[in-house]
Amino acid sequence: MSEPKVSVTMPCYNCESTVGEAIESILSQTFEDLELVAVDDGSADNTVEILKNYASRDSRLKLLFLEHQGVVGAANAAIEAASGTYIARMDADDKALPERIKKQADLLDSDPETGLTACRVGFGGDRDKNGGYAHYVDWINTLVDAEEISLNRFVEFPFANPSIMMRRELISQYGPFRDGDFPEDYELVLRWLEAGVKMRKVDEELLIWNDPPDRLSRNHPKYTVEAFYGIKSEYLFRWLQRRIGPYPKVGIIGSGRTSRKRYRILESMGVETAFYVDVDPRKVGMFIHGKKVLHREEIPPAGDTFLLSYVASWGARDEVARFLDDRGYVMGRDYLLVS
């Protein structure tokens, strides 16, 4: 048999209740020139039996069995075993819509400069109970073209991980997922963007991204808010060095305790604070570690001091961007949203 064009890689761990639907959603794709590499990561339930049953019925399902080592080891083992030109990610608790693989492969075929693609996703959870996650899905679905994704990379991870498809040669060039005290999918995207890899999405919902209570990102310490800020601060610091110089000096929008805590990581790396910006009259005019808190109407004109906004709430963050845009600031040139 010839090698498939697309390899879909799927780590599996104790997912007996969902893995069947995930498998069926891939094997029933309109795009048939694919293989599904499913890696069981030492499951203790009936996951293995389910995988073997599906593999006996469809030769496109390739199975690997590991001692439990975690999602990074399983994901990379699947990549290592894959033979396709394009490598796609899939999770064992999600559902790919029928055109997903075809439309993502078509995008990579039509745009040789794009190295990684994804798609918009449908939220498969309870919006009333998990509104924060639903808002996050709504936000990533607004980021489609390459510039939007690149400029917003320091806000949060701009993709649903199981929606990703990438060129195999870039994995060899820039490396697969890395294991550490950080979210491995976010670190890979930051690393590849830093290297200049172009990323864009198919502007359609092609995956249902479910939100079960035992989702790894809800329960593992490498996916905490602190872990996200730790890894993005490292890449943001290097971005600022390239943009501003070896000893970056910035203005910080948001002088509250949470904003300062998140910014402190960057500050400890060598970024100097020019001033803080706030709209709270109780804070305006104060000094924080010797740096004055300005009202936003007092900020210098665009081009004077680069600004980082640590305002995190959804509506307020957008309002900050509109205010700066109206003042002649340009995102990426004069400011970034980083929270």
Score class of each variant (00 low, 15 high):
Phe275Leu: 11
Ile244Lys: 03
Val320Met: 02
Gln173Trp: 00
Glu194Ile: 01
Thr85Asn: 12
Asn219Val: 13
Asp185Thr: 06
Tyr13Met: 12
Tyr263Glu: 08
Ala302Ser: 11
Lys129Ser: 13
Leu51Pro: 10
Tyr235Trp: 09
Trp192Leu: 02
Leu61Ile: 09
Asn161Leu: 11
Tyr335His: 03
Pro248Thr: 05
Glu194Gly: 10
His68Ser: 13
Leu336Cys: 03
Val293Cys: 10
Ala134Asp: 13
Val293Gly: 13
Lys291Ile: 05
Thr18Cys: 09
Leu193Cys: 02
Asn219Met: 09
Val330Met: 12
Ala105Asp: 11
Gly254Ala: 01
Glu3Thr: 15
Glu49Asn: 08
Leu294Ser: 06
Asn141Leu: 07
Ala274Cys: 02
Asp40Trp: 01
Val72Ala: 11
Arg60Gly: 08
Asn210Glu: 08
Lys5Leu: 12
Glu16Trp: 04
Met166Asn: 02
Arg89Phe: 15
Tyr229His: 13
Val19Gly: 07
Gly303His: 02
Ala118Val: 01
Ser233Glu: 10
Ser17Tyr: 02
Gly328Tyr: 02
Gly84Asp: 11
Glu113Met: 07
Ser309Gln: 04
Thr117Asn: 09
Glu147Leu: 03
Ala146Ile: 01
Ile79Pro: 08
Tyr335Cys: 08
Gly175Trp: 03
Thr142Gly: 04
Asp326Met: 12
Arg243Glu: 15
Phe228Leu: 06
Val279Asp: 14
Glu67Gln: 05
Ala44Gln: 09
Glu205Val: 15
Ala77His: 10
Ile140Phe: 12
Val330His: 05
Arg257Asn: 15
Thr47Ser: 11
Tyr174His: 14
Glu147Met: 04
Ile171Asp: 04
Tyr276His: 07
